[in-house]
Design a binder for these strands. Structure first.
Lengths: 229, 229
DNA sequence: TTTATTAATGTTGATTTTACACTTAATAAA
DNA sequence: TTTATTAAGTGTAAAATCAACATTAATAAA
């Protein structure tokens, strides 16, 4: 009988987290050395099993917190992976989640303590199971979304320069952007606050700092604006 | 211990299918009257449980076939739903899939025999569990994708008129489109074959029939072209 | 005060998008 | 056979957007 509950097969459900970060060196991803068998000692995404009384979104948050101490990170569900032997121990369906975070804001001691490590997306080690596929999928999604709506603010410090923003977009899209055109597009969205304050770290002249205007952004989102970079 | 397999909770995995169709009346969705408890007799998406030796994509195909006799339908995974009590009988995580099909090509006796029924997306009954949410989610995704890449050919008969194509897009996007601009955009993609043959059903003059040129379409897809309607 | 360094800024031509209305072909009815 | 009817088919001009491009400004260091 097709739909009888009693005869249906159960499976383990896992959640794997793809955490993107950005700093002066470019776009990175947060990985851990797996501390249990199988594949102990190999590099892996942060993952864990879904609990009986937990929804997937919540599990993703818990798992990220367990491995990194990070909290209040907004993650988005990406895809469910279900190849029969993707986990050699037991049939496990894994749902991937991804997030964007600001490395400098979050790097602190936390990640050290929990031995997670940032890798440039161009210099990642081979990962266990189907995690490489998950990462590629997440990068595609990130690029896609970035080319449509301005995300990326999560990846920068609260105050940032136009150059930082530009470099972030270049890293995500992995192509060069024209500085002047980029700036005028961003300005035309009117979702940034230009501060009086300058960042003097990068040049003699100093460059203005900006903050992200969340209210205006939310307002614009309603009319689903598109950012064509 | 966070990651021990033995202590992890298992759950049932379901797949639910959202099948979109289009005919002269507009955009529709295929539903069934549920024939087992709970919620027996209520309208529902076509769903079933994932088997031990089956991947999700494959389960979606099997379930659709079981309820409708349809086969060779390409479906795409949408989202995993995991609210604790979304299924009142037992903890069940459901992964939704959606597809677009051509009602006239597929309506035959099959769907009758299996008592699935088409509903206009504007006149759907209330569905069981969280199926309404799944449908809304799928409609959003369909609109989004349609505005980016030309899908929709799956929803039309092999030979179709420009008017049919236009009305399909209008139904999916639920907005009016300018006829001349639409036609010239579609033509500029060069993915249709204009036939000698005319459809005389709709007017004295008759309107040319077109077929979809799959080779050219695949070729274009590689350069990810965008259709801005 | 000169030099070196990076930030800031605007214009133009090309392309794309949008808005908009009349003519044509085929047939049915008179 | 003439006329009326119906939807199909077609083009243009104005507006908006995009892409390419180089010089000046501010400051610290020498």
């Amino acid at each position: 009988m097709l739909n009888s509950y009693s005869s249906a097969d159960k499976a383990l459900l896992a959640v794997d987290c793809i955490i993107f970060g950005f700093d002066h060196e470019g776009l990175k991803i947060l990985l851990i050395k797996r501390d249990f068998e199988p594949e102990k000692g190999k590099w892996s995404l942060m993952g864990g099993f879904l609990k009986r009384d937990e929804i997937l979104d919540r599990a993703a948050i818990r798992i990220l917190n367990t491995y990194t101490g990070l909290h209040d990170i907004y993650m988005e569900q990406l895809y469910a992976y279900s190849e029969i032997d993707r986990d050699p121990v037991e049939r496990t369906i894994s749902v991937s989640y991804y997030a964007l975070i600001n490395i400098e804001n979050h790097n602190a001691e936390l990640i050290q303590n929990y031995h997670a490590k940032w890798f440039s997306i161009n210099e990642m080690p081979k990962l266990i199971f189907d995690h490489d596929e998950m990462v590629q999928h997440a990068i595609r999604r990130l690029r896609y979304r970035t080319s449509i709506k301005p995300i990326g603010f999560e990846l920068l410090p609260e105050k940032f320069t136009m150059r930082q923003l530009l470099e972030l977009y270049e890293a995500i899209l992995s192509k060069e952007l024209d500085k002047r055109n980029f700036i005028s597009k961003i300005n035309s969205l009117e979702i940034l606050n230009k501060l009086e304050e300058k960042d003097m770290g990068s040049s003699r002249k100093g460059s203005y700092l900006y903050t992200f205007n969340k209210e205006k952004y939310e307002e614009k989102l309603l009319n689903d604006f598109v950012l064509n970079l």
